[in-house]
């Protein structure tokens, strides 16, 4: 797992690689266009999620997974139709080595006050079950899903605040939880502090941009991770 900052992650296990929410920050793509990846998952159609996914997909011949609005926008950006795949809520997308089950969540539009769909992803890859909430203000079923790693926003405004992420984490009880998309440095620290106290065994891991985490089931049943 590589963290690129904001809400951008790359998961890799064996031959399978998944780039999530490549995004754009300050009008600059977070991931270069020539990034080599097999599948790109985008949780909503906002630029900070979709980013330059279309260019990356064209260059690396990667699938783009997203909801209808996202796929339409990618198509409008010149995405090749044979590389675009619309995710339907609770309908898994599966390829050898990876299964992605989307759940319909919601993101807040700070300008209008309304909400639009954001997909939470339950990803099974490398024998790991990873819940990636994307840009969400609701938790959906993720409190009940069996999860090894929970990746949740904590920045407030249009996504979860720290308290919401903490509450979800306590219910989901993953082995590892990773905060993302914070808007102030104390937010991941606070999240981490809460999880250490109330997480009932969950380990909080605050990543910095560029850090890589290697996660494995050692001896088949011992959960281990190493941060570079």
């Amino acid at each position: 797992m590589t963290y690129y900052g904001h809400s951008t992650f790359r998961l890799e296990a064996g031959d399978v690689s998944l780039l999530i929410n490549p995004g754009i920050r300050n009008n600059e793509p977070i991931i270069p266009n020539d990034h080599d990846v097999r599948v790109i998952a985008v949780t909503n159609h906002a630029d900070d999620a979709l980013g330059n996914a279309t260019e990356i997909a064209v260059n690396s011949k990667a699938w783009i997974l997203g909801n209808e609005a996202t796929i339409q926008k990618a198509s409008a950006q010149g995405g090749k139709s044979w590389l675009l795949h619309t995710l339907r809520p609770e309908v898994p997308y599966e390829i050898p080595g990876m299964k992605v089950t989307p759940y319909s969540l919601q993101r807040l539009n700070p300008e209008s006050g309304g909400r639009y769909e954001n997909l939470g992803l339950h990803i099974e890859i490398g024998k790991m079950k990873i819940a990636y909430l994307g840009d969400t203000v609701v938790r959906g079923p993720f409190g009940q899903l069996e999860t090894d790693i929970l990746i949740t926003p904590v920045g407030g405004n249009d996504v979860f605040e720290v308290k919401d992420a903490t509450s979800l984490c306590i219910d989901a009880q993953p082995r590892l939880t990773i905060p993302m998309k914070w808007t102030a440095p104390e937010q991941p620290q606070k999240f981490s502090k809460y999880i250490e106290q109330f997480g009932r065994g969950t380990i909080p891991l605050v990543l910095q941009s560029g850090q890589i985490v290697e996660i494995e089931w050692a001896a088949g049943n011992e959960f281990r991770y190493t941060v570079n």
């Binding site: 308290k163 903490t166 509450s167 306590i170 219910d171 606070k190 809460y194 109330f198």
Partner: peptide, 12 residues
């Protein structure tokens, strides 16, 4: 902080 929490929720 916060001074009040949502009922039936878990809030730090």
């Amino acid at each position: 902080d916060p001074p009040e929490v949502n009922s039936f929720d878990k809030t730090p």
